[in-house]
Amino acid sequence: MKTKITTTIAIAFIFIATLVKAQDEKYIAAMKTGMQLFSTAKSGADFTAASNHFERVAGIAKTEWLPFYYAAYTQMINGTTLQDANQKDLVYDKALELIGKAEVLNPAESEIAALKGYITFMKIYVDPMTRMQSGMGEAMASLQKAKALNPENPRPYFIIAQNQFYTPEAYGGGKKVAKPSLETAAAKFEAFKADGFAPSWGKDQNQALLEQCK
């Protein structure tokens, strides 16, 4: 009798473990496919396809924040390829919605707060004259939160530095102001190690901007 129960439990465990493993493998495979779509994306349509893919993954892997994160990130890049202001707004709103869902899953993740700040910046740039005043505070608050959650994360430093770089001197930006910030970000990129699917982008862009400051 006892052996029978043990066997049943053992079978159940193996069964569940196999299922979980299968799910896990499916998730990893799906993420790999997504990263593949992302790394080969060139047009807005490609980034949309990558974003759609990550969003589907997010719908299944309900506890993972990374699918939503990448869905938001690729959607934001899609926004940069568009011309029409209304379309840009729709796409950035979608990106904000996606990163918002990631935030619900993991409110203390520095990477999420950083990307949220980044997308908010992009939304300001659709119509800077009218949105600068009301939006800057919100974007900066999110980026400062990202720094506080993980001071070693280079991305909030890079995003702020990049924004300084592209802000006209008259409004307190410019290369001079951006250079030390880009250097700080560069040092943080050197020290930062990302594993698995964790975000690792930004180092090259940061370096490229730094070159232009010389």
């Binding site: 499916k26 495979a29 799906a30 807005g44 349509a45 949309t48 396809a49 759609n52 893919h53 969003e55 589907r56 993954v57 719908g59 299944i60």
Partner: peptide, 16 residues
């Protein structure tokens, strides 16, 4: 319509 996400509900299978 380009860029529409199409998939089987509750699965990873889908495309744009």
């Amino acid at each position: 319509l380009p860029g529409v996400s199409i998939s089987i509900k509750n699965s990873y299978d889908g495309t744009s």
